[in-house]
Amino acid sequence: MTGDTSALQLVLTGDPGLYAIVWLSLLVSLSAVACAAVIGVPLGALIALTRFPGREAIIVVLNALMGLPPVVAGLAIYLLLSRSGPLGSWGLLFTPAAMIIAQTVLVTPIIAALTRQTVEDLWLEYRDELAALDVGPIGRIATLIWDARFSLVTALLAGFGRAAAEVGAIMVVGGNINNFTRTMTTSIALETSKGDLPLAIGLGIILIMIIVMINALAWTARRAGERYAG
């Protein structure tokens, strides 16, 4: 990709370099949201339904981690994955996998915290009925997650927003390598620093459009689902 063509032109001409960047951005962020959902939703539900000493502290920490600075998360993963780090032998540093891990770390607290809140609210409503129906702990968690599924879409979207918007973590662990770990946000940072503002702006617009589109899709799905399930 060269600096003298505008992003719009690249889109219109189907520039393969640009598509690779967009594709990698989506792959990394969506994979991170998927991983974070697999960890964060059950974790949030578990915290919502259990009472143990230190629970309040965990909720506070979880809420605070929603604001974890991406660069710091990136640094932590960097230290883990770097050659001399504990997981250095995996050889993941400066690969898309490392970027997915870093974004998973960023997104999991958001999904867990929002799930905790949603499931706890629903739990207050359902608890008597579920107790009367003799539903065991696993069944309760499954029921609450399933019945809160449309509200949980919002948690996933918040997580996706965070992943798609961040640059600090993936820059540190991915290294912004052309044709390998370069994403929309890291390109924008790079082009801006190189002074290619039109390209940076163009990429920014594309990124925003993609985020809006994904939100619109999720919203439509949520609406349709709610109409069916009440």
């Binding site: 359902y126 009925e129 019945d147 399930a229």
Partner: peptide, 11 residues
């Protein structure tokens, strides 16, 4: 059956 039964968000 509670006085104000809570229906699950299902059919």
């Amino acid at each position: 059956v509670f006085q104000r039964p809570v229906m699950l968000r299902r059919s």
